[in-house]
């Protein structure tokens, strides 16, 4: 069975997935969004039909079967493209996402799944509501409240409120001595001592690594990675949450405190997993492929 991959060339995760799928003998049809938006295009959705067709002036028509398998890595690049191409990008993504939300085949991940990872206070609240231990947090532009939170909780991690990837940093009250509301809002989360664990959950299969690092944000540091076991109660929470979010593939960040408690930092709905996949000999790619072609 062919897996349709929708994304952009040059995305390391897309490259890794395609490379691993092809090496395993699975045919891949790649929809390069950059190539499509450069030319006229048309996509047709039949509610009860068995396929959609993407016609582009650049290539032969591409049949997208309703019972096909799809791996999506789509981002909204419209703000960084010239205006006409940006509009083309936005409308093309809208059309493709509408279709891929409605198809009957497996989609990693279905566009209609939960999207609260793009709003961290809501995301963390949701995780907490679903049984995870989540560190206390404050989102504010009010200097007095920010300083009071840090005075009470000690040094905290500051991270993006939105879904943009950023380097987490450790901050203290002194860092906000001259803070002006115009620099806000900021999202602070109480720091948890311990070590990091990254878990990729594919269907019900979990791939976990313990990460020991002296850096606040282990990415890009001289961290030590080793396979790790997720406790069954935490794994059960993750599986239930992923099902409720309608996300087949998620990347989870945990911090494990010295008392053994698992603190959930976030669940990523579009994990850039290639970095982790290389250390486990493609086991994550293989699992994604399995849920798509079974």
């Amino acid at each position: 069975m062919t897996i349709h991959v929708v994304g952009v060339q040059g995305d390391n995760t897309v490259c890794r997935f395609v490379e691993q799928a092809v090496a395993a003998g699975t045919p891949v049809a790649f929809v390069d969004l950059h190539a499509v938006v450069r030319h006229p295009w048309r996509i047709t959705l039949h509610p009860d039909g068995d396929h959609a067709v993407l016609h582009t002036a650049a290539d032969r028509p591409l049949v997208l079967p309703a019972d096909g398998a799809y791996y999506l890595r789509t981002v909204d690049l419209s703000p960084v493209l010239p205006p006409d191409r940006g509009r083309a990008w936005r409308h093309l993504i809208g059309a493709l996402m509408a279709y891929l939300d409605a198809v009957t085949g497996p989609v990693v991940n279905r566009p209609g799944g939960h999207s609260h990872n793009g709003a961290k206070p809501l995301h963390e609240w949701w995780l907490s509501q679903h049984g995870f231990a989540v560190p206390p947090a404050l989102t504010s532009s009010d200097p007095d409240r920010i300083r009071a939170f840090l005075d009470e909780r000690g040094a905290a991690i500051v991270k993006a409120v939105c879904g943009s990837r950023g380097t987490a940093q450790l901050v203290s009250t002194a860092d906000f001595a001259d803070f002006q509301p115009a620099a806000g809002p900021v999202h602070l989360q109480q720091r948890v001592d311990g070590f990091d664990v990254r878990v990729h959950l594919v269907g019900d299969e979990a791939f976990a690594e313990r990460i020991d690092s002296d850096a606040v944000d282990y990415r890009g540091s001289d961290a030590v990675y080793r396979p790790f076991e997720v406790p069954s109660d935490v794994l059960a929470l993750m599986r239930d949450a992923a099902r409720e979010m309608d996300l087949v593939f998620t990347g989870w960040d945990f911090r494990v405190s010295p008392d053994g408690r698992w603190w959930c930092l976030e669940a990523n709905p579009m994990p850039g997993y290639d970095f982790y996949d290389r250390r486990c000999d493609g086991a994550i790619s293989a699992a994604v492929r399995r849920v798509l072609v079974r």
């Binding site: 006229p40 048309r42 996509i43 047709t44 039949h46 002036a57 509408a98």
Partner: peptide
């Protein structure tokens, strides 16, 4: 009462 739908950019629908 769903009806088929087409999206297009500089191409005529069927």
């Amino acid at each position: 009462g769903e009806a088929a739908e087409a999206y297009w950019h500089a191409m005529r629908p069927d």
